[in-house]
Each structure stands twice: as structure tokens, then as C-alpha cells.
Amino acid sequence: MRNNDILWKLIEDKVVLLDMDEGRAIILNDVGSHIWMALEKQKTQEELVHEVTTAFDIDEDVAKKDTRSFLDEMIRKDLIRVL
């Protein structure tokens, strides 16, 4: 799920994040923006992979790899939290 302390907004179809503790602004790419929006509700990794595969019409292995690396990065930065 999203870290609720993070301020964010959708601008020109891209999610922009403000990490207040860090004083950093982050613009997510298309896949990242899609996953962030999908995380409005709690989702499993498999559900997210499925959504990415459908939305971007890509191979499931590629979607799995992209989703995993995106989630790893976001979790390490404490922008997304694992329940």
C-alpha cells in the first residue's frame, strides 16, 4: 500500500510525489504511475503484474521484472509499504 505521509498528484498522466521528510520531488514513469494509481486499494504483487501486463500489452515476464524492481525501489525509499 502507499505510504500515506507522501503528498502526490497526477499531472499530465504522470504521478508526481513529494517526500516531505526527504525534501525530494519524484516524477514516476508510465509504469510507476500506473502501479501507484492501482495501489489506491491494497494489492498483491501478482495483481499488480496482471494490471501492468494488461495496461501496457507486454510480456508477463517483462511486467513481472519491471513491477518487482519498481516495488523494491519504492519500498526501500519508504514510499510504498508492505503489509
Binding site: L7, W8, K9, I11, E12, K14, V16, L18, M20, G23, A25, I27
Partner: peptide, 10 residues
């Protein structure tokens, strides 16, 4: 910082 989110474009 919230003002930054008022940006109209990327």
C-alpha cells in the same frame, strides 16, 4: 511544498 503540487504542467 504543497504549493509545488499546484503546478499546472510537468
Amino acid at each position: 511544498p504543497q504549493d509545488i503540487l499546484n503546478a499546472k504542467s510537468l
